[in-house]
Write a protein that binds this DNA or RNA. Structure first.
Lengths: 122, 122
DNA sequence: ATTGACCTTCACATCAATGTGACGGTTCGA
DNA sequence: TCGAACCGTCACATTGATGTGAAGGTCAAT
């Protein structure tokens, strides 16, 4: 598919699709006329990228973790350098921290809303 | 305490502590000489702010949700306008989305690391 | 063949979070 | 009283993610 369709299907401005490519997050082919050619699973990948960006990860990190998330999992042991593994472990920890923080605060908001609605009902 | 101590105890540059204040996230008093005076629980508040920022929330949103998270919970019903409640609910949903995304990807990284280490061991 | 809806690259603009440093006042200990 | 280590404001710079628009190529339908 071309960039317009991908943009529509992912709700992502074309500008950003090109930006993600520039950042090495996606790598579309090119058709004869020079247009970018995306395959079907790029849709999911873009959504995944956007989710991670929205969760505070910078493109630099996303670029590093994306290859580990491909299904079916194929491990390129060239890439699995000790530094890379250390980075991954560190990011994994940061993600866990984020999850904790988000969960705690989300639950607090939920409690607040529950209490407000209890008040209105009571 | 003054800004230096708060900075050290939260690992946050002074510049940012002033920025958070400018954004209405913290509101220190002032001592006679004009120095900012923070009380003890500002430490936790700053850590909470940093966590939320790191998880992708903008200061604008953090400013809105912080008052709902104060313990002990005191609901200022002036603030609980329908629009405010709608915003909170929406942010709650976005946070849930983020948690889902982070959890999924974190688990995938964990699996990847497990597989690599299985390979090294095997 | 022209129009309109695509696509391309390039470049400058914006916004939020953060870095950095200038310049000056305060406090405290040697 | 001097210097070091704080603090204050102000302001300009940077970085990453994004907005926007110009100038031009491609292609399908009329």
């Amino acid at each position: 598919m071309r960039i317009g369709e991908l943009s529509e299907r992912t709700g992502t401005p074309r500008r950003l699709l090109r930006y993600y490519e520039e950042q090495g997050l996606i790598a579309p082919g090119r058709s004869a006329n020079g247009y970018r050619a995306y395959d079907e699973n790029t849709v999911d990948r873009v959504l995944q990228i956007r989710g991670l960006l929205d969760a505070g990860l910078p493109t630099r990190i996303i670029r590093q973790i994306l290859p580990c998330l491909d299904k079916p999992r194929v491990i390129h042991f060239r890439d699995a350098t000790p530094e890379m593994l250390a980075t991954l472990e560190q990011e994994l920890n940061r993600m866990t921290d984020r999850i904790r923080c988000l969960t705690r605060n989300r639950d607090a908001i939920a409690e607040y809303l529950a209490e407000v609605s209890r008040h209105k009902a009571g």
